[in-house]
Design a protein around this nucleic acid. Structure first.
Lengths: 354, 354
DNA sequence: TTGTAGGCGTTATCAA
DNA sequence: TTGATAACGCCTACAA
């Protein structure tokens, strides 16, 4: 076999730098952490040694020594939505796991569809208490301003699930929603057996950037590749199952030749209830978003045909890694942080809790 | 906002245990690491303190102190296969990343389709050099025995991509290949516009458990849900593009009404070359495995319609986490280690390197 | 069978 | 502007 180097190549430590640069540990540390009180010449010398030896700091040891605690806070919309619940679970779970890692996570629900509330809550955050926040919110001017303000006060900001591109957020953690909509469209087109028909689109809120983008992508593909299919205007469910259950019968009464339904939001309860009640002339092709207990069951039963999803565990872990990197001014590994657009059929659904 | 506990709840340390149990640090450490030389009574006392305080060891500090180096070795089949290349890249990449983490990774290519060679190489591994190995190999009695032997000598073993269930391997890291085949079948069935026709199945080797299982799952779904479709016997490409390019024209000459191709192995080059040459009467529906530069391009161009994949980065990271946990006798977080069956259409293909 | 003391790589306090 | 020195939580010679 190809032998591994038995003579362990030990990485240089601060001690080595100190020796080579001819200074003390404390000075090396000051240079390393950009603290004041070192002459320019000395800084030069230390940096040269660092370069020369190819020094890389041992984060574990550093964290051990400084006993630092990272505090990250998640702001989530207050809606009875399974996807949000999954995010909450993942936050709680990761919080336990990372307690040993001196990382504390917390979350808070913010009235949904109320940008003012979100902006207010962001502005009330105390930079003493929190190193970074993750925001799942529609993009509005007030939210944008609140983000820029809190950033100025030294808090790192990640936009979660729905991007806030006009703000100074450090990073967006979520999927490309146009591509997700396109994927849904492609599946829908292929799964429909007829070349004609109408598609009903059920969405959460027209305000939300993620839903808009999904709709856009969906329409693109239907127009390009399935011109015989008509996509109807979106039905706005506002994450309210009862509202949706009332709206749906009307929609089908008005448009009798609907053959497929695209549910672009995570609130699937109303839709599933409606479909289970029966009463429709034909089997609908249904494509939904987010793998949750409910949608998983719908897929299992054949009520849904496909689900586009994003891994909530990955979303939360990625957010935390990025917030840590940002607070420490460290680079992030983009490729690890890219969230995939998952496609699930009944066949490849992961086990619950997987 | 919901205030986080400002008074940091510090976790108990070995010192606290020592104090509570009325013993020294060294004794606590001995108990913690199951080292000999402690009276039963004392062990009891220490364990009670550990329970009582809810102590959890700080692995980072422990590793720092012992300066331990983990050495893991990967055994991969020696075949000109993009999927294997991706695995190699991920190993090299992770090896760099984890150097700081005192973890050294290496890999070695083993003659493909030669179980004896694999068994020999496994048996030659020196437990002094390596803490754990990951094996990507067909399951044969000799490999099984070699695995059991090396396990006895204290080396942790992970079966990678293709399981070795009859052996004493510690864990299998890979997808459920029956489910993967079923997923391929479901997509194929839906993507075919006609209800009749024949499907050509191209595989790597009939020896490989993963391919067999995929074929099994594929057949299940076709029989259950698309009874009008005939699935032809597998064409064995042995990861040899030239061989496949020669075999394919014959197959089409013999069976003129083929409408779809299922490529259940990772070696797609021969198939793609053949399809690009044209000469077929109609557009084939093609479902392949593993997202690689080649298959990605085929998807982009419309030569392939869907790809079933497994994330190579996840495979390698998961393997390493598991080998570490096994060498340290630590529990593993099953849910994080479950490898997803990814479905990619042109629309949701991640960027290269993502 | 048990304890003492020193060290892993980094940070932080205090004195020089 | 710099440097000793002690800590962080854990492990391990060596001594008792």
């Amino acid at each position: 076999m190809i032998k591994q180097d038995r003579d362990i190549i030990l990485k240089p430590t601060v001690n080595d730098i100190a020796r080579v640069a001819g200074v003390s540990l404390a000075t090396v540390d000051r240079v390393l952490n950009g603290r004041p009180g070192v002459r320019g010449v000395t800084i030069e010398r230390v940096n040269k040694a660092i370069q020369q030896l190819g020094y890389v700091r041992d984060t574990a040891a550093a964290n051990l020594a400084r006993g630092r605690v990272y505090r990250f806070h998640f702001l989530l919309p207050e809606s009875n939505n399974e996807f949000i619940s999954l995010l909450e679970e993942q936050i709680s779970h990761l919080s336990e796991v990372m307690a040993l890692d001196r990382t504390r996570l917390s979350f808070e629900k913010v009235p949904a569809f109320d940008p003012q509330a979100m902006a207010r809550i962001i502005s009330e955050i105390d930079p003493e208490d929190v190193n970074g926040i993750a925001i799942f919110s529609p993009e509005t001017p007030s939210v944008r301003d609140a983000v820029d303000q809190i950033k100025k006060r030294g808090v790192s900001v990640v936009a979660l699930v729905s991007d806030l591109p006009s703000s100074k957020r450090d990073h967006f953690v979520g999927i490309d929603n146009v591509a997700a909509g396109r994927t849904a469209g492609q599946l829908m087109g292929h799964f429909l057996s007829k070349e004609k028909g109408k598609i009903l689109v059920v969405t959460g809120s027209m305000l939300a950037r993620d839903h808009l983008e999904r709709r856009l992508g969906f329409d693109q593909v239907m127009t390009e590749s399935f011109p015989g299919i008509t996509v109807l205007p979106s039905l706005e469910g506002r994450d309210d199952p009862d509202l949706l259950e009332r709206l749906l019968p009307d929609a089908f009464a008005t448009e009798p030749d609907i053959t497929g339904i695209y549910s672009s939001a995570a609130g699937n309860l109303g839709l599933i209830k409606f479909l289970r009640k029966g009463g429709l002339d034909q089997k609908m092709v249904v494509v939904g978003h987010e793998l949750t207990p409910l949608s998983r069951d719908a897929l299992e039963q054949g009520t849904f045909d496909a689900i586009i999803s994003q891994d909530t565990g990955h979303l939360i872990r990625s957010t935390v890694r990025i917030l840590r990197a940002k607070t420490d001014n460290l680079p992030i590994n983009i490729s690890q942080e890219r969230i995939r657009i998952d496609v699930y059929l009944k066949e490849n659904m992961p086990l619950l809790g997987g």
